[in-house]
Design a protein around this nucleic acid. Structure first.
Lengths: 191, 191, 191, 191
DNA sequence: TCGTAATCGAGACGGTACGTCCCGTCTTTTC
DNA sequence: GAAAAGACGGGACGTACCGTCTCGATTACGA
């Protein structure tokens, strides 16, 4: 879109904050660009200048919300993945990230930005966070060399999306179950 | 709503057919109730009389499309599940069921009918088709007594939804992978 | 429409009564044929069989309501006309005739039956009741031979319609004023 | 409603013009807001933003159409009133004002804007144009001090409405008759 | 210190679809 | 075999937002 360097940081923050508030208050589906603009004290055009759509804006809101910044040690893949997932789920519990993620998965059926974000890992693929460390572990022998990292990542993402979409619990127990399902069968040798 | 016995079967079929055609032609998101009514040669009200929303209508379209009517033998849970999934995926390949299912999962975030249908397995949960036979197998000893059928079903559904939503392949190979992931880890070959 | 002799008098009465009730309760504009049918315990078709439209039905309701049956002596045109008008206004006060008449005048702009009824005196022209006796009075010399009966009738009707439409008072004082306005100027010689 | 200073004069004119055309072509009752919007090349909402209803819009159309701008001398009330009425009737003959006025009187039975406009003389009451000069004439002695201006105005309006509603002629002869009926009886030639 | 340009709020605008209402006709079912 | 009950095609309603487009008021900067 427009040159992001020209974004007024204050306005941008106000918009993102307004968007986050509104999801919490009325839910993703009920939020309109007009409402965000009004809440942020900003013209509609100012939003459209920087984001193509509601979904595009919420991709940014989501990624600011769910910022994994402390990466655990990658000694044991199981431990690592569990730690990451628990951290993410804690963020989910503390923010409105889950309804946003649900809204984005939903919007991905009609919005290109959301679709692209989901498919290309900004959100769902969790490429940098999930897949790469596992790939490294394979190379290092902490996972079998033929371990199918992509499949593991797909399973994890699938399980998370499913609960996000259907309102299931996203707690530590679920995190452990995901790790078990994704790493135990094939991961046996790692033990 | 209204007394279902007064529903005109011809109209109902015309509406469902029009809805199915339109998804195939322009995609779920682009379909409007008005377009369905026009295509079916029907007043808009005739649609609203019997269905609360586009999603409610497509729940019916979907379940007519994906009618599993030949149930394989339940001797081996693995074989059974694989057979069921392959059958469903064949129906998916032959119809517009996948975009509809994606649309419904999407709409479930804003439409109660779709949400209810999804949660209660009429569509995706595959409750009767997937879970019950597995439960039976546990009771019969063909699966370990402590096999977690609900978790197995959730995994299967999650994997399918994920591919439906992100446009991944839904072929026999995928069916086999689901079976492996869902039944091998805990179950082993029925011990 | 259909042969009126085949009307079931009971149903017809029920329909007319329901129509009268409904005007009193919710006003002419808000009444629908469906509501009348429901209230009368009758199918919509039964109403349409006998009347072309809501307006056509209310023409009948109105004329049953405002039935002038006691005609005063026609010795003095002024007295006669005053008596007639007072009688009509008393009926107006006792029934829902005024809102019905207002509704009919209104509907006459889009309903042929109402327009015809208004123009041809069933309601407004008051031909039989107003004009003819005056015409007779001219012939008898109780009014000047060149007295313009049509103009007198038009004035009377105009004044009544105006108050009916704009919600003005329709009382005995108004009746007297009409008589004065319509008969005094020209009627001088009658005195 | 909205801030009138933001109204686009061009759109507003286009809408009013479209409305005027359509009455002329298909009659007041058959005109729909949708048709006006389409004809004016305007979104429906743009009409609803500035007018509450079809009637509200036509109040404006009518008052633009029937703009009395040359006021005759008020020396002789009879002459004055006759001149005004002839002027108005000439405008009626030259425009679609009569069907609009009929439609508005009709709509006043179900639309508050039309009712208010009619009652408060913006349209039919002709309050400022008819009543005030007569009132002045009373004060100046050109009419008897006890001349009932309100009644005179009511009679004039009533007669006009009646012909408007029932399609009677609105010509100079009618204008003269109104003047005669309204001013001669009580007033005599200003005595 | 001031013009002058860019920026931005506010929201009007054309447009699309919504879900509702009621019309007048047609169909089914019940008595 | 008539008529209640109400489904039906149709058309307009008034509303909600979309994404684009003016408009002034407000800044912010170069002269």
């Amino acid at each position: 879109m427009a040159d992001p360097s020209r974004r007024s940081p204050a306005k941008q923050a106000a918009i993102v904050a307004a968007a986050a508030q509104l999801v919490a208050e009325i839910g993703y589906a009920a939020v309109t660009i007009e409402a965000i603009a009004a809440r942020a004290g900003v013209g509609k055009q100012t939003i459209y200048r920087w984001w193509d759509s509601k979904a595009a804006l919420y991709v940014e809101v989501y990624s600011q919300m769910v910022q994994v910044d402390e990466f655990p040690d990658m000694v044991d893949p199981r431990r690592y993945m569990g730690a990451i997932l628990r951290q993410v789920f804690d963020l989910y519990a503390a923010t409105s990230a889950v309804p946003i993620l649900a809204g984005l998965i939903s919007d991905a059926q009609r919005d290109d930005v959301a679709r692209h974000a989901l498919v290309h890992g900004l959100i769902g693929g969790r490429g940098p966070v999930l897949a790469q460390p596992l790939r490294q572990a394979c190379r290092d022998g902490r996972l079998p060399a033929d371990f199918d990292v992509d499949w593991a990542a797909e399973m994890a993402v699938a399980l998370i999306w499913k609960r996000v979409l259907s309102g299931g619990a996203l707690d530590h127990a679920f995190a452990d179950r995901i790790v078990a399902a994704v790493l135990s069968g094939e991961g046996g040798p790692c033990r």
